[in-house]
């Protein structure tokens, strides 16, 4: 499934909800379901602190793809972290770098991605893209050189 297809799935999930209450209940459920980051990665260097809530993000590069695990201290933030991971984890660096993530806006959660909200999410997306860039530079440029 491409990123666009995955985003479409999530958009369809959210279309069923009649109001913000149902949406938030779903987010909270997803927050609780988030596969927790391995405790050993819940360290200060993986912490993205916002004024409001904080996010831990870990990234790994395996066989040309990048895998993210994450956690947050706030459950609604965690729900959105879950959505972002569903879309961006297990992708190539280029896919991650090209992802626009418009679906967050389309499912009506834009306010949580506002930089002024300071909940760690905007910085988390930035960090995910930085990981993609760094892994790409580290693994993919050396591949090119060895060829």
């Amino acid at each position: 499934m491409t990123i666009a297809e995955k985003e479409l799935v999530i958009r369809e999930e959210f279309e069923n909800f009649e109001d913000w209450l149902e949406k938030y209940n779903y987010l909270i459920e997803m927050g609780k379901d988030l596969p927790l980051i391995d405790e050993k990665y819940k360290i200060k260097s993986n912490l993205i602190s916002g004024c409001q809530s904080s996010v831990w993000l870990h990234a790994e590069y395996r066989d040309g793809k990048i895998y993210f695990t994450a956690d947050s201290d706030a459950v609604i933030t965690k729900g959105i972290v879950n959505l972002l991971i569903r879309v961006l984890s297990g992708r190539t660096a280029d896919e991650i770098l090209d992802a626009k993530l418009d679906f967050i806006d389309e499912i009506g959660l834009k306010e949580h991605l506002s930089p002024t909200r300071s909940n760690g999410l905007v910085s988390m997306i930035k960090q995910m893209k930085l990981y993609a860039l760094a892994f790409k530079a580290k693994y993919e440029s050396s591949e090119r050189e060895s060829k």
């Binding site: 913000w20 209450l21 938030y24 909270i28 004024c51 409001q52 809530s53 201290d73 706030a74 459950v75 609604i76 933030t77 949580h112 300071s118 909940n119």
Partner: peptide, 22 residues
């Protein structure tokens, strides 16, 4: 045991302006 961000995000939906955080 509940994070203030979560409480504030829900209260906001009632058009009630409160502040959360440190």
């Amino acid at each position: 045991g509940v994070h203030p961000y979560d409480v504030g995000s829900i209260i906001d939906k009632f058009a009630v302006a409160v502040r959360t955080g440190h």
